Simulated assay, not measured.
Amino acid sequence: MNFVKFNPRLWFLLGFIGCCSLLAAGAYMQFVAELEPCPLCISQRLAILATGVIFLFAALHNKAHKAYALGAAVSALIGAGISARHVWLQHLPPDQVPECSPGLEYVFRHFPLTETIKLMLTGTGECSQIEGIFLGLTVPAWTLLAFLILAVFSLLTIRLQAKADESRI
């Protein structure tokens, strides 16, 4: 006997809350701990935001669960790719680290949009700096782990929905 019925709306809402928690942690690190985010950190936050918005729409819409789950998983995996690049940059030998760029405010004002996007997705020298370690992992490594969990969490909705549909038959 199945006492718990799978509810995709609740599942997607939990994913949205998870993304909000990640964004709140980033805001805390920036505004309270005063850790200035690098271009890759900002790109990762945008990927978390995009994933969270997809989760929110899925929870509100309550249809097309598979499409929303795939969309959230793709968004999370894009974020995981950005985080993996960030982790890679942090593990480069000092002589292979790319040059630091001017601040993002300056870049947004004086560089073309394509150059700004390229800078935000590839990272610069300041992205290789390790600002803090928690339980042996850097913040980008934790973010990579969070993105992978979000992707699995999202794809799991497809499997759980299929099992729920099977049990109704």
Rank of each mutant, 00 (worst) to 15 (best):
H110S: 12
H91S: 09
E99M: 09
L135T: 07
F108Y: 13
K118C: 07
F111T: 10
Q129D: 11
L137V: 08
T116D: 07
S101Q: 06
E99K: 14
E115V: 00
L137W: 11
Q90S: 05
T116G: 10
I133D: 05
P94M: 09
E105D: 08
S101M: 10
I117Q: 07
Q129A: 10
G125T: 13
E105A: 14
R109M: 09
P93F: 10
Q90I: 00
L137S: 11
T116L: 06
L113D: 10
R109G: 03
P93Y: 12
F134K: 06
T122W: 01
P112T: 05
L113R: 09
L121T: 05
D95T: 06
V97E: 00
P94H: 12
P102E: 10
R85V: 03
G123M: 02
G123F: 01
S101A: 14
L113S: 09
Q96W: 08
I133L: 10
V87Q: 01
L92D: 00
F108N: 11
L104K: 09
I117H: 08
G81A: 10
S128T: 00
G136N: 06
M120K: 04
Q129G: 04
D95E: 14
L135Y: 12
Q96C: 07
F108S: 15
E131V: 05
R109Y: 08
R109Q: 15
Q96F: 07
C127P: 03
E105M: 07
F111M: 14
P112M: 01
Q129Y: 11
L137H: 12
P102F: 06
H86S: 02
T124W: 07
H86P: 01
Y106V: 11
L89M: 08
K118Y: 05
P112N: 10
T122E: 04
S83Y: 07
G125Q: 08
G125F: 08
P102N: 08
Q96G: 03
H86L: 02
